[in-house]
Amino acid sequence: MAEQIIEIENLVKRYKELVALDHLNLTVTEGEVFGLLGPNGSGKTTAISCILALLQFDKGSVRVLGKEMQPDSYDIKRQIGVVLQNVAVFEELTVQENIDYFCGLYITDKKERKQCVEDAIVFSGLEDFRRFYPKKLSGGLLRRLNIACGIAHKPRLIILDEPTVAVDPQSRNRILEGIQKLNQEGATIIYTSHYMEEVEQICTRIAILDKGRCVAMGTKEELKAMIKTGEKIHLEIWELKPEQLEEIRSLRHVYQVDYREGMLEIRCSGGKHNLVHILDYLARREISFGRVYSELPTLNDVFLEITGKELRDSAE
């Protein structure tokens, strides 16, 4: 049985009146790419800070690699790699010097460190920029340097807090491939992001946080099964009367109908042959239509259905 890398039980963290983490429970198993999703202010970064013992919490427990995590748990910290939300590198050091510095905080043996630094440079594709100062690097390269600094010491657990913010698609793709490679090499990954497609692409298990609580957790498929939407059907219809809209809404499995600017979106809660039933209805009523397509719910649908559609602007 795979080892529990992280076990969080009833974790509570308050900032004066604000409850940032409200009896949070989480477990991360070895070898997983664990996605941590949540709107702004949901408690993702606070949870990560508690895991890393950067923050003191009010209640609950955090166990990492089977041991209680404390600020002085250096034997545990040795096995953790951290890539924080904002780029954290020394402007005064070159790419190579930066990686060497952060790697040196974990590995004291010079020979071993040299090899680790070289591997990290190759891994992040920074071979041509090793003598560059961070100021001279593009946003994508800077993010890659940030990752290289966090993973150079070859940790067993890697925590990546939104590592692809403000990165172009090419760099993002490279970063995601790199993360998958690290996972294949044996590292357990905790990944937080706002980009649903990224999480869907690389995470094997996902937890959705909202208002400091874990509101859903499971694989992509499990999460999708949790929501009402089983299928989304889109039809291009030029004219639709209100009574016809009501008739469509009353069809079997249909639970939500939205008609806007000539596009009809029908959400079905499950069942089979939903599209056939709808097309059959349109033929009977002689309603002409253009493009038609059907899709399964995405993680974005899961996220919005679970956390709601209202804007979240509070600071985390």
Binding site: L52, L54, P71, D72, Y74, D75, K77, R78, I80, V82, L84, N86, V87, A88, V89, F90, E91, E92, F102, L105, Y106, C149, G150, H153
Partner: peptide, 19 residues
């Protein structure tokens, strides 16, 4: 001032080298 940078300080704190 460089070492007091919030992000760098957090990264140093996360490391295996004691405070």
């Amino acid at each position: 001032n460089t070492f007091r940078d919030k992000e760098l300080a957090a990264r140093n704190k996360c490391s295996a080298m004691s405070f």
